[in-house]
């Protein structure tokens, strides 16, 4: 010990300690990250990516290019991340049925396993947003309802309507309804910004705030129509229609009857 302390002010001690610390951190990190990813071995992962690549070549490459480099009609998928694939394919938007104004939600063409393979393949091209895990999506526990409502009205309602019913955008595009959308897909859409939607990065809206928004949307979905028939939750247009048709219609019917009976 004494011999060691004799060299403690040696000029090589600083760099040596730095190298030692870096090695220590590196080793710790590699061990730690290896344990979290231990569910899928590297070999499994390669097999999954290869499976995804095969699906991609058959179903996606005609538009997105053999190497996902994009083309005249479709964007490059390098760096869009697994979350983007999971959202687009998982909600049935991709593959597109036709090249109309906007890819619409429909029954998914690929099974969840195939979607996972596709996502793994696209994620292997370049890093991008990851698919949130079940644990990350516990919105009932981690989200706040009232905060979600305020965030929704500030960031989402201008396109998706005050109750998430959707609304019109320019040139035939639209913000779709948010009713019946899986929490995972809502989260992914905020992270990846599909089609006309902007990206809400974790700096703009934190993951916890995203969960609050999801909690509010899910509550709105389940909320009973407190005042009677909802009329679509789209505001005064349907109300005016009902006032003229049912309201005035009934009253004119009664008026005709009253004037008839006098004869």
């Amino acid at each position: 010990m004494k011999r060691l302390s004799r060299y403690r002010r040696h000029k090589a001690v600083g760099p040596a300690l730095l190298i030692f610390a870096l090695l220590g951190i590196g080793t710790t990190f590699s061990v730690a990250s290896a344990t979290t990813a231990s569910e899928i071995t590297t070999a499994d992962r390669s097999a999954l990516i290869e499976e995804g690549r095969q699906i991609f070549l058959k179903g996606c490459s005609s538009c997105h290019g053999i190497n996902s480099e994009g083309g005249a009609i479709a964007p490059s998928l390098v760096g869009v991340g697994a979350a983007s694939v999971d959202f687009q394919v998982g909600t049935g938007r991709m593959p597109m049925a036709d090249m109309s104004t906007q890819a619409m939600r429909k029954a998914p063409l690929y099974t969840p396993e195939e979607t996972a393979a596709l996502a793994a393949y696209v994620a292997s091209l370049a890093p991008g947003p990851e698919i949130p895990t079940e644990a990350q999506l516990n919105y009932e526990r981690d989200g706040s309802l009232a905060e979600g409502g305020e965030l929704f009205r500030t960031n989402c309602a201008m396109c998706h309507n005050f109750a998430g019913q959707g609304g019109a955008l320019t040139q035939g595009k639209y913000a779709p309804t948010l009713m019946g959308v899986e929490p995972k897909h809502i989260y992914e859409s905020m992270v990846t910004g599909p089609q006309s939607m902007p990206v809400f990065s974790d700096k703009t809206i934190t993951p916890q705030e995203k969960l609050s928004i999801i909690k509010w949307i899910k509550a709105a979905e389940k909320e009973p129509n407190l005042g009677g028939a909802s009329l679509g939750r789209v505001g005064p247009v349907t109300e005016g229609l009902l006032a003229w048709t049912l309201g005035l219609g009934l009253l004119i019917g009664v008026a005709v009857w009253l004037a008839m009976k006098a004869r």
Partner: peptide
């Protein structure tokens, strides 16, 4: 909100 309309 999207679809801001007045009464008829």
């Amino acid at each position: 909100t999207a679809g801001s309309q007045p009464d008829w």
